[in-house]
Every structure is written in structure tokens, then in C-alpha cells.
Amino acid sequence: MDTSKNSAKILLVEDDPILSKMYATKFELEGFTVVVAYDGEDGLKKATEEDYNLLLLDLMMPRLSGTELLTQLRQSEKGKTKPVIVITNLMDKEEQEKVKSLGVYQIMTKAETTPGEIVSVAKKALNLP
């Protein structure tokens, strides 16, 4: 566990309150600053307005799906090159293709991944030690 602050800020878009609390806790413990959005619409608003270094994005969400959020984000000046890690539990072929074509750092299956592993991938994406 690394409790020293790092300067990186994560935007976490995840509708399940328990999971978002868990991921936020883990990232904060690892020294990240975390902003949470609980649905796709709020996520897109924060993703285009707030400052952050990496987007941690769930796909199956109310109001606006993660895939749709990502599509719109990639069209904005700010979100064009933002590193994104997709965390999901269910994805079909078409969605996977779509998400990949929009450019993501990695797609991770939530049920097969621990929060610690997601943090490791995020650190790698941000070139953090």
C-alpha cells in the first residue's frame, strides 16, 4: 500500500454505489485523487468539464452507456486523447469492437480483476511508479 500522494486524478464513472465506493477507496489509498460520477450523463459532463488524468469507465449504465459516453468524449477537444480504462462485466462482440475502435488503454472484466490490479494498470497507463 502506497499512501503517499501522487498528483494524478482519476474520473471514475460507475453506477453501482458499492463498486464505485470500493474502487474510489482503493485509488485514494494508492494516492490518487478520485472524482466519481454515478451515471453516463453525469460522467460525460464531468469528463468534458473537469480536469483529470485518466478515465475509469463502466459500460452498462443508466441514461447514457459507457460506450456512448466514450463516443462523445472522443469528439470533444479535451477528451480526444484522454487515457481510458474500461471496466465491465458484460460485453458483446459489437460493443467490444466499438469500444476498441474509440481507443482505450485496456478493457478489464470486473469480476475477474481486483481493485489492486486495476490500480496497477492505471499506474502503467500514466507512467507512475
Binding site: Y52, P83, V84, G103, Y105, Q106, A125
Partner: peptide
């Protein structure tokens, strides 16, 4: 191809670009 084999980071992403 739909089954994968697409590189993990297919478009140029600036890592750790603080904004």
C-alpha cells in the same frame, strides 16, 4: 478480427498528460 487481436492502445494516447 472481431474476436480481438486489436492492439491495447490503438490510437495515440498521451499518457499522464496533466491538464
Amino acid at each position: 478480427v472481431a474476436a480481438g487481436a486489436i492492439p491495447a492502445a490503438p490510437i495515440a494516447i498521451t499518457p499522464a498528460a496533466s491538464q
